[in-house]
Design a protein around this nucleic acid. Structure first.
Lengths: 247, 247
DNA sequence: GGCATGATTTGATCTGGATCAAGAAGTCCG
DNA sequence: CGGACTTCTTGATCCAGATCAAATCATGCC
C-alpha cells in the first residue's frame, strides 16, 4: 500500500488547511496540536466504490474521516440481512461506535469512489492523552454521534413514509450546507434500495413518495439527483408525525 | 439539599464497594483512581417517581448513574410530543449524549422511586485529564451507548410488532442478568403507553402482542410483572425480521 | 449495436397494525 | 366503601404501506 509515502508527501498540507477541519477532528485545536495530530494522519487515501473500509467484528484498528465521496455503514442482523445505519459524507468521522467493544460494530462501504483520512486507533489514543483539547473534541464528537442516532430514532419511531423521506432530504441538504455546498441539488449516492433499507421502508414506497413529492412541485427528481424546490413544504412534511395525537 | 452531608457519610463505601461498579464508571480503574473518583461522586441521592433528573435543553451540569430504581429518557419533537429514547436501570449512565452540544438532548424522568449517583460534569472533566484509564473507560462507555442506540435502530427498522416486544423483553432480561439478578420475572416499571411509545407502536398493539405471547405459553403476565417461560421461543420471535427476505 | 442484467417506476392487491369503541380492572381519595 | 379516574384489555373497522406483478429505463459487456 502506497499510503505511507503518500502521507509523507501530503503531511504539510493536511488537517491544518483542510476545508473540512471545522467538521472533523481538528476543530477547537490550536496550531501546535493540529501539527502534532496531522503527522499521524494518513490523508485522503483513495477507496473505490464498493470497497469496504472496515467490517463488522474486526478489531478497532483506526478511526477514519471521509475526505471525499460517500460511504454507508451497515450492521448484519441475526439472519444475515443488512440494516444500514448511516450515510457518511466529507468531514464525517467513522468508527466511533467501535470504542465500546474495541471492535467495529458495523461494516463501512464506499457508495462512490471516495477518499479517506485515517489515524491508527492506538496513536489517536496516545495523542488524546497528550492533548487535552483533542480529548474534549473527541468526546464532543461522540456525544454528537449519540444525539444524531437519537434524532434518527425519533424520526423512524414517529414519522410516516413521507415524513421519513422529507426528513432525510432536509438532513442531507443541511449537511451539504455545513460543508459549504449549495443546499439544493443533492446527489443521492445511494440506491433506492439503500435509502429504503435505511429508512425502514420498501423500495416501491420510496419511489412512490419521491414521485409524489415531484408531482406536488416540492422537489425535482432526475435519477440520482434531487433538487429541493420548496423547503417550507418539505419542512411541513418532515414535521408530520405519523400516528395522530398521542398517548 | 442534604446531598453534601450524605456524601460525606457515604464516601467510604461508595464506588469501590458498589455492586454495580462493573457496569458503571469505575470498571477498569485501579484502587487509587476509584478513591479519587468517589470523593467527587454524590452517592445514591433519592429521586422520587415522576421527578425529572434533567431536562432537554438544560446545560450539561452533571453525569449520572442509576443506583436503584428505573428512569426513562425522552425527547420532545417539533410538535411537542415525546419520543422515549431509552429505559435506564441500576448501573446505567445518564447524560452522555449531552457531551456533543454541552446541553442535555433529552429529559430524564424517574419511573419509580429511584436513587442516583451524580458527578459534576466539570469535576469529571478535570478528573478525566488526571486519570488516563478513566478517560478510556468514558470513551468505551460512550462507544457502548452508540452501539446500543444502533442496535435499537436495527430493531425498530426491521422488526414487526412481535419482534419488537420480544427483543425488548430479552434485552431487559439480559440487563437484569448483567446486574446479577434472575433473568426471568421482569418488573415492567413503565406503563404500556411508555412501552408503546418507545417501540414505535400503539398501546393496543402492545397489549395484544403481550396477550398473544401469554396465550402461546411464552410468557406469564401479571400486570407489571412478566415471567419469561420459553426463552427459545422468544428468541425466535425476536429474530423474525419483519418484511420478508431483502433487497 | 444488441442483448443481458439490474435499477427504478407504476399499478393492483393484501395485510399488519393503527384507529375507533367499549369494557374490565386497578388506583386514588373523601 | 363508593365514586371518579386512570390504565389495560379486547373487539371491530380502516388504511398506509407491504407485497406481488409488470413495464420502463440504464448500464455494462461482447
Amino acid at each position: 500500500m502506497p499510503a505511507t509515502s503518500r502521507r509523507l508527501e501530503q503531511v504539510n498540507q493536511a488537517c491544518g488547511q483542510c476545508s473540512l477541519a471545522h467538521l472533523c477532528l481538528p476543530y477547537g485545536l490550536d496550531t501546535d496540536d493540529v501539527a502534532q495530530l496531522e503527522t499521524e494522519v494518513e490523508v485522503a487515501v483513495p477507496l473505490p466504490r464498493g470497497k469496504t473500509l472496515f467490517r463488522q467484528g474486526e478489531p478497532l484498528a483506526a478511526i477514519y474521516a471521509v475526505s471525499a465521496g460517500a460511504l454507508k455503514t451497515a450492521m448484519l442482523d441475526a439472519d444475515g440481512l443488512e440494516q444500514i445505519m448511516g450515510f457518511y459524507y466529507p468531514g464525517d468521522l467513522l468508527g466511533l461506535d467501535g470504542f465500546g467493544a474495541q471492535t467495529h460494530q458495523c461494516t463501512a462501504t464506499a457508495l462512490e469512489d471516495s477518499r479517506i483520512c485515517r489515524i491508527e486507533f492506538e496513536r489517536l489514543d496516545d495523542l488524546i492523552d497528550d492533548i487535552p483539547s483533542l480529548r474534549r473534541q473527541m468526546m464532543r464528537l461522540m456525544g454528537q454521534a449519540l444525539s444524531d442516532d437519537e434524532s434518527l430514532l425519533l424520526t423512524l419511531g414517529r414519522k410516516n413514509s413521507e415524513g421519513r423521506i422529507a426528513t432525510l432530504l432536509l438532513c442531507l441538504s443541511r449537511r451539504r450546507q455545513q460543508r459549504g455546498l449549495p443546499a439544493s441539488p443533492i446527489r443521492l449516492s445511494m440506491k433506492r434500495a439503500e435509502l429504503a433499507n435505511f429508512l425502514g421502508m420498501r423500495i416501491e414506497t420510496v419511489s412512490r413518495v419521491l414521485s409524489r413529492m415531484q408531482h406536488n412541485g416540492i422537489i425535482t427528481l432526475a435519477r440520482a439527483e434531487v433538487a429541493i424546490c420548496d423547503f417550507d413544504a418539505l419542512e411541513t412534511w418532515a414535521g408530520h408525525g405519523a400516528w395522530a395525537a398521542d398517548q
